[in-house]
Computed example of a mutant assay.
Amino acid sequence: MGKYSIEEFINKTKQDEGENEYFELETPRILEVNLSDQVWAKAGSMISYNGQIKFEREKMLEHGVGKMFKKAFTGEGSSLMKATGNGRLYLADQGKKITILELDNDSITVNGNDLLAFEPGIEWDIKLMKKVAGMMSGGLFNVTLKGSGKVAITSHYEPLTLLVRPGENVITDPNATVAWSGHLQPDFRTDISFRTLLGRGSGESIQMEFSGDGFVIVQPFEEISSSGTSS
């Protein structure tokens, strides 16, 4: 069998039949969900499946009136779909790198554009950074997840985790910030000259400042959603 034969390609890239974890990284950019009940995933992230699986768009009142109003206010920056049934489900989001995190009775806040999927038992809530709503188009929309179970997040290229310690604040670009410890509350600051000095246009630069004890995950890419809302 030749080095570049179709058979060799199939052997190198075929799905792993032996995997049986709820979430598995089939490749660094494709998530396999071994579905036996249901899972919440980013709408439009399904690339393939087998078995008997039904897909439903998140219903307006499925998660309560409060979350419905928040989603309306944020312009529904990240719609969810529910997959129910039995089978293998494959998810991806624009070729972004996928990271699986297992929550153990703790919490994490994820940029609304970078949340790919999570187990149905995890509690979630939408957060809108109101302080920045007037400074960025549409504000900044995030999802706080808490409880126990797996969460899959995405990033452009390899993510970097920055440790936040008392007295050692971490400052990030909002469009490059993927997630952070659920108990951290970022502050927003502006720097009029920052982008001008870097040759990136005029006007104010908005930065997120994290203080306390925890972590922040960033990506080497500034992401702005197609709707015009900063992600």
Rank of each mutant, 00 (worst) to 15 (best):
S79Q: 11
Q52F: 02
L184E: 03
G95F: 11
F221L: 11
I192F: 10
I108T: 02
F215V: 06
R195W: 13
G147S: 07
L80M: 12
P28W: 03
T109Q: 05
L31F: 05
K70A: 14
E102R: 14
N20S: 14
F141I: 02
I30E: 02
V65M: 09
G147K: 05
T229F: 14
K71Q: 09
G18N: 13
H183A: 06
G199C: 09
Q52Y: 01
Y157C: 06
Y157P: 00
G51L: 08
M135G: 15
T161P: 00
G18L: 03
S231Q: 13
S5M: 13
F210P: 10
G51Y: 03
S45W: 11
L116I: 08
R29T: 09
V218G: 05
D16H: 06
A133D: 08
S5N: 15
Q52V: 03
V178W: 06
I206G: 09
N175K: 10
V132E: 10
L31K: 05
E26D: 13
L103R: 04
I122L: 15
K130Y: 10
I53D: 06
I122E: 11
G44D: 12
L116G: 09
G147L: 03
Q185A: 10
K127D: 06
G2V: 11
S226Y: 07
S193L: 10
R88S: 07
E119H: 04
S148A: 15
I224A: 13
G149N: 14
F194T: 06
G214K: 03
L35W: 10
F221H: 15
G149D: 12
E123L: 04
F210M: 10
L116Q: 08
R200F: 12
T172S: 05
V143Y: 15
L80R: 08
T172Y: 00
L163Q: 10
I206P: 08
E26F: 06
S181F: 01
D114G: 08
A83D: 13
I53C: 09
G214Y: 04
S79A: 11
L101S: 05
G201Y: 13
E204A: 11
Q207K: 10
R189Q: 07
S48Y: 09
V132W: 08
D187E: 15
H156P: 01
Y157G: 00
Q185S: 14
I10C: 14
K150S: 13
S226P: 08
V178S: 07
L116K: 05
G199T: 05
E204L: 09
S193P: 00
M129D: 11
N86W: 11
I122C: 08
I122G: 07
L103V: 05
S202D: 09
L163N: 03
S45P: 11
I47N: 04
G199E: 12
Q219V: 07
N50L: 06
Y157T: 01
D114I: 00
E168T: 04
R195S: 15
T84L: 07
A152L: 07
G167W: 02
S48P: 00
Q207T: 11
W40Y: 15
R165E: 15
M1T: 13
I47S: 13
F215C: 03
V170G: 03
L160K: 01
T172K: 00
P166V: 00
H156N: 13
D187Q: 14
I122T: 01
E26P: 01
K97I: 02
M60H: 07
Q207R: 10
G64C: 07
L128T: 14
